[in-house]
């Protein structure tokens, strides 16, 4: 029996439909990622799990309980670290953990918990004096202090530097090994790929895919791209006629070819036969980003030109000039 089950969950705020018929289940000990852009309905979904919001319709069960009706009971077994939750600036770390420990019937030893989270030497520090990463770890500590069987962690690495982010990921690994089921809300692809057993991709209030990270990537295999810069005109029709090629577009000085199979080899051979000099060519590895793009039609990064988040070509840059 799943620890969490959600069936056809709907929630609207006035005219805005935040969650539009979401269904999923989370098994014991699993890390389920909820991935999506801002405003996709992730936070509303987990707020319904935590009993903070009452669903308009649909059924939510946490350990067999209705989180809205039985919210006090549910919160004894479900710890949440939600966005925009904070502590007063003048509370000391150790005091906060002790205070939150007192809310639960059973719970972790505050000192040991702080040691586990690397905050032991900060236990006399004020909340205001902690770094962002330390505040985030304290927030996780407060979510875990009641020894929950389920933890909801919402955007827990937002605003952290890469080192703090990696530390937090190691921490999540440790929590899972302790047998805690985790629902991880994120819009960081790398985070989802690294930590999650399964990922629910949420777009405009609906789940567009629910699969393992590998499964999601596999769905996007057809969407490989080769990006070339050439001297001389490219015979676009000839390229488009190749069986491996599914699409082609011009992006400034570059030609971007989409397709399957050994695309780079196919494209370079075709261009050679056209006597076109290739000055630069890059293959983009298929990532979860591509899967997201394929599934939702939009990139996860909202930055302009987000079609190529970061520079995924960097690693697979090939010097074709040399190979000629």
């Amino acid at each position: 029996m799943p620890v969490i089950s959600v069936e056809n969950l709907r929630k609207r705020y006035g005219e805005h439909v935040a969650v539009d018929g979401v269904s999923f289940a989370v098994e014991k000990g699993e890390i389920l990622g909820i991935l999506g852009r801002n405003g996709a309905g992730k936070t509303t979904t987990v707020e319904c799990l935590a009993g903070l919001r009452r669903p308009d319709s649909g059924q939510v069960r946490v350990m067999g309980l209705d989180p809205w009706r039985d919210r006090v009971k549910v919160r004894q077994v479900l710890g949440s670290q939600l966005q925009e939750g904070a502590l007063p600036g003048k509370v000391r770390v150790g005091e906060a953990v002790k205070l939150y420990r007192s809310f639960y019937r059973t719970g972790a030893d505050p000192d040991r918990l702080l040691a586990d989270l690397g905050l032991h030497d900060k236990r006399r520090a004020f909340y205001d004096d902690l770094s962002g990463g330390q505040q985030q770890r304290l927030s996780i500590a407060l979510a875990l202090v009641g020894r929950p069987r389920i933890a909801i962690l919402d955007e827990l690495t937002t605003g952290l530097d890469p080192a703090a982010r990696r530390e937090t990921w190691q921490l999540i690994d440790r929590i899972r090994r302790g047998g805690v089921t985790i629902v991880l809300v994120t819009h960081v692809m790398e985070e989802a790929e690294r930590l999650c057993d399964r990922i629910a991709v949420l777009d405009r209030g609906q789940i567009v895919a629910l699969d393992t990270p590998e499964g999601l990537i596999a769905r996007a295999q057809g969407e490989q791209e080769v990006r070339v810069r050439t001297q001389g005109a490219v015979d676009q029709a000839a390229l488009n006629g190749l069986p491996e090629v599914t699409g082609l577009r011009i992006d400034g000085e570059h030609v971007v070819i989409r397709g399957r199979g050994n695309l780079l080899h196919t494209v370079t051979r075709a261009l050679l036969s056209q006597d076109v000099v290739v000055t630069d060519a890059r293959v983009r590895q298929v990532t979860l980003d591509d899967a997201f793009l394929t599934l939702t039609g939009r990139s996860l990064d909202e930055a302009p030109g987000g079609h190529f988040p970061g520079d995924p070509y960097e690693d697979s840059r090939t010097d074709l000039e040399a190979s000629r």
């Binding site: 939600l82 925009e84 904070a86 639960y104 009641g146």
Partner: peptide, 10 residues
């Protein structure tokens, strides 16, 4: 967000 933080506890 202190109240929100408390709202998810018992």
């Amino acid at each position: 967000g202190v109240l929100r933080r408390l709202a998810v506890t018992p």
